[in-house]
Design a protein around this nucleic acid. Sequence first.
DNA 1: TCAAAAGTGTTTTATCTACACCCATGG
DNA 2: CCATGGGTGTAGATAAAACACTTTTGA
Lengths: 249, 249
Amino acid sequence: MILKSISVDCVIFGFDNQSLKVLLSRQNPEVILNQINQQESWEEVKHLFENHPSFSNNPSWNVIGAHIPSTTDLDAFAREIVENATGMNDVYLQQFHCFGQVNRVPNHRVITIGYYALINPTHHLIRKSVAVKALEWFDPTALPPLAFDHAEIVQKALESLRQEVQYRPIGFHLLPEQFTLTEFQSLYEVILGKKMDTRNFRKKIANMNLLIDTGEKQKNVSHRAAKLYRFDMDVYEQLKREGLKFRIE
Amino acid sequence: MILKSISVDCVIFGFDNQSLKVLLSRQNPEVILNQINQQESWEEVKHLFENHPSFSNNPSWNVIGAHIPSTTDLDAFAREIVENATGMNDVYLQQFHCFGQVNRVPNHRVITIGYYALINPTHHLIRKSVAVKALEWFDPTALPPLAFDHAEIVQKALESLRQEVQYRPIGFHLLPEQFTLTEFQSLYEVILGKKMDTRNFRKKIANMNLLIDTGEKQKNVSHRAAKLYRFDMDVYEQLKREGLKFRIE
DNA sequence: TCAAAAGTGTTTTATCTACACCCATGG
DNA sequence: CCATGGGTGTAGATAAAACACTTTTGA
């Protein structure tokens, strides 16, 4: 059974070395429904999804989401939604807010639980499955018209990400496995919306011991090749346990 | 109509100058139901509430909560719940997490949205209405057996509070209108679970200009009477806007 | 006059900020 | 050899931490 009053919306963020992007959809309800929830009675699900922002037939864009089946855990369902849209299932997912105004969706009382996801779009190509009518990256500060309260949802996701990124070293989830310090800094500049001093930034990062020099370098760049680093998961886990004295601002 | 799959649980925190407390309930479902939702069909509501942790007949304690009617905004309903339990409606309320494991409540799929509230229990007496079978303050680190996943809910509320209190000056919501610097410090010590240096703490607070000297002093204390301060709401609002460089750790 | 908590400054140490030039690479 | 971004250190300012004694009050 699908729970009619509850949906999950996933604000999927990506970073392409220049800017932060958010993935929005215009979808084909019939196809994706078959796929997500084969055990459901078609009519019931169709009704629900047609009335849900993510599957509505109107021309506006939507945050990617769906109504949750009664047999799926909340976190697991968010993961399912992201995997369905992108083909990736090892993404960083964070529940950030539950939206519950009575009139956020016309004609239906739908409470939606918002998650944001961090993925690296350049290294994992988005799977444009048959289910997807349209799936595109947008600049979160210049969104197209969005369905219902989805602009608010993206806004709040962005705020939560900005908050979180300052105190937890989660930014690397938006980067490929190997990255340069400049990319790392640029990530923070883009998310926080301000320029930082290169030397000071590098000093701070170095003190945290979160990055490992891979010994490799960029190739085929028309300038001095930058060193490539990767994230040290052990230090990351340790920092998380110790209350993490990670701070970037 | 009551939404059967969605409840709101409010973890109500209080501070009595020595320790942080959390308000838990054992309630009389029949009476409170009449009160909360007179327009509902009795049988439907009774069924729901009897199966909801906050209104179950088992002897364990519950976080104070209820199922949300389809006609009430989420935030407003949380406020209603707190007002119903305490008689206070100007409390600080913060949504902190949505709990959605399939089996968190046996036999029913109930997703619950968790809020925490900060109140000052010494100055606003908890109204023990007819609806309340039992309502008591507990040490959040030494809870009685709690229904379902309510221990986890309290735990997560506490973690969220600890997080939030360090970066936003919300602590004063737990204090009476006028308070001493020692009380203010003690509040932080209790929430964060560690002793702080008095002189350094006072320096920090003084730099923020968040407190106003009322000119008054404690009375009838058997030691030097401390100055009484109150919160400066204007500075508070300003700090909130400016991204608040408030930090206590 | 005693007990109990209030109140107050200075020195040391760590962290943050501002700032400018040389280096490596491909075209 | 030029354009482009990569990479580095130091000095001054600011904030954090450590630390002990005097004051006020009621009993």
